[in-house]
């Protein structure tokens, strides 16, 4: 009897654990499954199978690519994707170069004022972007670059998070490498460029990934700073489709699909770099 009750208890426990894990998986995947399924459904079918709640709510009965065709032709979503890609590319390239240089200065060069420079950067983490939107917008306007692509990416190039990520990794490289480079006759810049940068490749991959996803996902700033409807990044384009008077559900779903799935695929492949980057400094966005 004893073994039986123990087994029963264990069985019950396992069932409860399995059920709660199933719930977790469903809670995190159902929104995606619904999005994926609905983006391949003709418009009427989405509403037809909402009630009752069955597999037909998720799986298209008569799958179609029409939504995507319409998205790219009628709604010109392709130009938004191109714009967002272009901006993400510029953000990543500029910020990696700019941030890794100052990180090298902070990590390896000995000079008066280094601590001051460190706190100069650290202090920027204190006032988040949301409290700076209004004056930042006015600064961009006074620079005369509002309504341009530059306005979208310029404020995000120097990023304290990326600087500290690089600095941390550069600090872990033994000083001997740096000295050896100088003895070999390299300039400081060459030590940075040819010796140090290749050694922190994992941190660079992390930064590229985080910065890319961050730029691809950014919404508030492009919303505020761009009034020109031809310079709509994907997030703003989706938000506009979503807040239309009569929402075209199928179009919005397919737009969400096109925006999300490529990022998720890249994320799945490079997950460990993302996790390493986010947890090593414990700061994001």
């Amino acid at each position: 009897m004893n073994t039986f009750t123990i087994l029963l208890k264990r069985g019950m426990r396992n069932i409860i654990i399995a059920l709660s894990l199933l719930f977790v998986v469903l809670a995190f995947s159902i929104p995606y499954l619904w999005m994926i399924g609905s983006s391949f459904k003709p418009r009427a079918e989405i509403f037809q199978y909402i009630f009752p709640f069955t597999w037909r709510t998720f799986v298209p009965v008569s799958p179609t690519f029409h939504n995507f065709v319409e998205l790219f032709t009628t709604f010109k979503f392709g130009s938004s994707i191109f714009l967002s890609l272009y901006i993400a590319f510029l953000t990543v390239v500029f910020s990696i170069v700019v941030c890794s240089m100052i990180a090298f200065v902070l990590a390896k060069l000995q000079f008066k004022g280094r601590t001051l420079l460190f706190f100069y950067i650290l202090a920027t983490l204190m006032v988040p972007f949301e409290a700076r939107i209004v004056p930042l917008y006015l600064v961009i306007r006074s620079l005369g670059v509002d309504n341009t692509i530059a306005a979208i990416y310029l404020p995000w190039i120097a990023d304290a998070f990326v600087i500290f990520l690089f600095r941390q990794h550069l600090c872990e490289i033994p000083k001997d490498f740096y000295d050896a480079g100088l003895i070999e006759g390299c300039t400081h810049f060459r030590v940075y460029r040819s010796l140090m940068l290749p050694m922190i490749t994992p941190a660079i991959v992390s930064a590229i990934l985080i910065k890319f996803i961050w730029s691809w996902d950014s919404f508030i700033w492009p919303l505020v700073v761009i009034r020109n409807p031809r310079l709509q990044v994907i997030t703003v384009a989706i938000s506009n489709l979503f807040s239309d008077q009569d929402i075209l559900w199928n179009i919005v779903f397919s737009a969400a699909f096109v925006t999300t799935i490529p990022v998720l695929v890249v994320f799945f492949m490079l997950q460990k770099y993302y996790i390493a980057g986010v947890t090593s400094s414990g700061i994001k966005g």
Binding site: C99, L117, T124, T187, Y192
Partner: peptide
């Protein structure tokens, strides 16, 4: 040379932070 490198290599980030963080505040 250390100072020159420190200045030139940190200048882009320094200026960007000044314009987009400190001046707005």
């Amino acid at each position: 040379s250390v100072y020159l490198h420190a200045i030139f290599m940190s200048l882009p980030a320094f200026i960007a932070i000044l314009i987009f963080n400190y001046i707005p505040i």
